[in-house]
Design a binder for these strands. Sequence first.
DNA 1: GGTAAATAACTGACCGGTCAGTTATTAATC
DNA 2: GATTAATAACTGACCGGTCAGTTATTTACC
Lengths: 222, 222
Amino acid sequence: MGDRGLTDKATHKTPVRRRKEARPQELTAAALALFVEKGFAATRLDEVAARAGVSKGTLYLYFDSKEALFLAVIREGIVPVIEEGRKLLAAHADDPERMLREYLFGWWAMIGNTELGGVPKLMTSEAQNFPEVAQYYVREVIQPGKAMMREILDRGVAKGVFRELDTEMVTHILMAPLLHLALWRHSFAACCQVPDMDPQSYLESFFDLVLKGLAAAPEGGK
Amino acid sequence: MGDRGLTDKATHKTPVRRRKEARPQELTAAALALFVEKGFAATRLDEVAARAGVSKGTLYLYFDSKEALFLAVIREGIVPVIEEGRKLLAAHADDPERMLREYLFGWWAMIGNTELGGVPKLMTSEAQNFPEVAQYYVREVIQPGKAMMREILDRGVAKGVFRELDTEMVTHILMAPLLHLALWRHSFAACCQVPDMDPQSYLESFFDLVLKGLAAAPEGGK
DNA sequence: GGTAAATAACTGACCGGTCAGTTATTAATC
DNA sequence: GATTAATAACTGACCGGTCAGTTATTTACC
């Protein structure tokens, strides 16, 4: 059919069916959406392939198994975003309160409110069944994410902006409402008609609560 | 073999194998443990039956389907505990800070730290796949649980112990660290070797943070 | 026509659910 | 109190559908 005369790499605009390079990304994107929507076990590889516009056999040209696809979904999907977030956060490295705000709202903008927002639910659900994927996720996502939060807290304590804290515990505690918001949206909010919760005011309330909870006592105690 | 002489109803201490009354409980207990450990989809009904000491056929004498078993696990397992918690909480109805503390630590003692602690993970994972079970859970567990928390907050605000708040949002936010603790224990903590987190100090840090975050301003502003 | 890409048909293990048959327990009869 | 009949509790082999993974074949491009 095509009579393109270009002899070199040929920037084919025609959606030719052979596109070895793009396939893995298309497949992981399709898999992410379906894993998040229906869960890992309930997602059929036929569906993943169909959503990516190929057949199941093609999927197996790029991934050895369903678990390998799972790992790729995490690796391609969320790991790069963590690194990106770290860079953004470094821009305000001198103001702990500002950093905390950037962290919370940035997390929502870059993860919670995107198609990646279902990843926490997916990983929590499947961690026990796929310990290797879970370990990868802990190492590449959870630990870096916690380290960033802890850096903010430690810095705030050091500058006297925040009071003395068990920063390890508080790090965990402060991640919880973010994760809860994402989990909620991808579980009960999606299937039961619950009065919807505006993420923006949720985050504002949370930030407000936390700032007051962390603040160093002005002067006289109670 | 047996030479029990009692001719009446016979309070048989011997664990005879036919025990119609006890079976459903034994089966839901086995199912809870396995659903929590491996997830709903990955749990075989043969396993549930085996753990309860019966065959799969017997399971179907008491439950119509795997989903019916799921619903029974929730109904028998956690719904009664909610009502129990409500009564305990009413005992301190005059002191909002005390109520809040009772709520947090009571939740951990009665749910998070028991075999029920895996239920939040189970329900979050499966809500989309079993909307009817999810709706039951929202109605009988989540909404009552939230209502209790909200009652505490509204009362605290009314008494001037807590500052003005968006109590609806704060209710959600305060549930998150509890649920997070339970989810964590039943996912990553169970499969990746993560430095374990002491629930007691986690809850103390959380309670401390929240009390300071909620406290009405003494007098002067910033 | 050679080869890389993609497919569609296929396989085999698995598992929810069923049911004909077995065993323990109770009731009835002498 | 022993034997038989009736019933309730239980079993495990089986069936049918599903789905991860494989392979023989076709298609597209050089």
